[in-house]
Design a protein around this nucleic acid. Structure first.
Lengths: 139, 139
DNA sequence: GTAACTGCAAAATATTTGCATCCTT
DNA sequence: AAGGATGCAAATATTTTGCAGTTAC
């Protein structure tokens, strides 16, 4: 794991530090998207709240994670899969929010559909967030 | 306009008050979605910030407005078109965020596509938010 | 050694709650 | 008259900024 995180950081031109390793590891271990608060809670070793903010921002800038839009206030973050570069997100999967257990996850297998817009509108990115009952909760 | 807003409030079982009329009128006049901050700025007569929060919450509860999910922190609100009832939103249109002028709007004519989910997932609501350049900005 | 990262303090901003008063019905 | 809505004060939560000390390369 340490190997993996270190690699990922280096590949994105970031220096390897304790907080970055720990936070990145959290994302790699997690099936679901994480809110700022989750990160504060789940890292064994506690980091300053400010460090978490800055680390998330850095990961965003470098295309390591992306945000998932939600209708309520909350911002959730998830790992970008492969082809995100600095400044260019290519997340072409949809997101799912379970209204029972609350987890937010990326459904990597489900492609975002192409949507025909009215004349004059130019689409750059399409976000799809579906809420409902997830696989686990509907058992 | 006063007629319209009053009607709308009554139809949703709300008492008719100054702040509700003014805030609802803002939504009716506005082409685009409004953030809490927009409302504070755009109402001539100033209301307490708390009143704005509470009014928006009330409108949400009654199905008069809905939120639009965004990837950044911001929450935007827009009028529900017709068939929203208390506790049941039926917004089946997509949302558009212009990355040039920043406006967020409902594209009422564009239907949300049906998306086939993996086995076990049950969809209740699908949100689609497309960002790009809007009609006005691409002229 | 130098540039970048972190933690602490504090500022700025956003949101919620309690309560007394006022307004709508 | 009664219940609900508003404004004010204040508590809470969230996010940002500056700076000094520390760490990665």
């Amino acid at each position: 794991m340490e190997e993996l995180t270190t690699d990922l950081l280096r590949r994105h031109g970031l220096s390897v530090t304790g907080s970055r390793i720990k936070i990145l590891a959290l994302f790699l271990q997690s099936e679901s998207a994480l809110a700022h608060h989750d990160i504060e809670v789940k890292t064994k070793e506690k980091f300053d709240r400010v460090t978490v903010y800055r680390t998330l921002q850095t990961f965003m800038d470098k295309g390591i994670i992306h945000t998932i839009p939600t209708s309520d206030n909350s911002v959730k973050y998830a790992l970008c899969k492969d082809n995100c570069e600095e400044g260019h997100h290519h997340d072409d999967h949809i997101h799912f929010i379970c209204s029972r257990c609350g987890i937010t996850s990326c459904l990597d297998k489900v492609q975002v559909p192409h949507i025909k817009l009215p004349r004059g509108y130019q689409s750059r990115q399409t976000e799809v967030v579906i809420s409902g009952i997830c696989k686990e909760c509907s058992l």
